[in-house]
Simulated assay, not measured.
Amino acid sequence: MYKKKGFISKFLNKVFSETPENKKELLYFINKSIKNKLITQNTYNTIEKVINLENKQVKDIMIPRTKMITLNIHDTLNKCLQIIVKSSYSRFPIISYDKNHIIGFLIAKNLFKIVYENNKNFSLKEIITKPAIVPDSQNLNRTLEEFYINKNYISIVIDEFGIITGLITIKDILKNLFKKNKKKKKIF
């Protein structure tokens, strides 16, 4: 009995029988999948964003330094908890003097463990992690890859002079991939 081919089989057969020479051709083949009702327009939009991820730089979507919520290495446990609860973030840059001197990151759950254990000898120095650093000109594709390889989901962003310009998280990249387009865009 003849078995109907699934989307993946059809897509791979098409790609390998008529190999696209560039991104535009690849997107054309994927766009044909919409016309054949194999994928939705939203799926196409997401695939297009993934393909074009290398065209965007960290500076395009990073959180600027002026909007970073930080903790000071000398903050009390109470002050840290207040900032964490108010912001509802899970990772925080730790500064020593100002936002130009980031010495590490605090993962909130590590602080909660100290609270749960009722540890009287609180010190941020003991629970912070080493900061990862990325240049603001690095493409998002590479940044996402580094996040997965290093299992580090937040990085300090620096400019070409080594000045801290902001931070970027894996959530920022994923949010950029899955945000809705304002208007439908067709290639051909």
Rank of each mutant, 00 (worst) to 15 (best):
L77N: 01
T70G: 05
D75C: 08
H101F: 13
I102A: 00
R91H: 11
E54Q: 11
I73A: 06
S96F: 07
F105H: 04
D75Q: 10
V50G: 05
N55V: 07
I83Y: 03
T46D: 02
T76E: 13
L106Q: 07
C80A: 09
I63T: 15
Q57C: 09
F92K: 00
L77R: 07
L77V: 07
N100P: 05
S96N: 12
R91I: 12
I61W: 04
V58A: 00
K99Y: 09
L71N: 00
L77Q: 09
T43R: 08
Q57S: 13
N52K: 12
Y97G: 09
Q57T: 12
H101L: 12
L77A: 05
N45G: 01
Y89T: 09
D60C: 04
I83V: 14
Q82K: 13
I107K: 09
I63V: 15
E48P: 02
I107E: 13
R91S: 13
F92M: 08
T43A: 14
M62N: 02
I51A: 09
Q41H: 03
I103W: 00
S87P: 01
S87N: 11
N52V: 04
S96W: 04
M62C: 03
R91T: 13
T46L: 08
Y89G: 05
Y44C: 01
L106H: 03
S88E: 12
I51V: 15
M62W: 04
Q82Y: 10
I102S: 05
M62R: 02
P93I: 09
N72A: 10
I107H: 14
N42L: 01
V58P: 01
M68L: 09
F105S: 06
N55Q: 11
I102P: 01
E48I: 02
T66V: 15
I63F: 04
P64Y: 10
C80G: 02
T66N: 14
G104I: 03
N42M: 03
T76M: 12
K67S: 12
K99N: 10
Y89E: 10
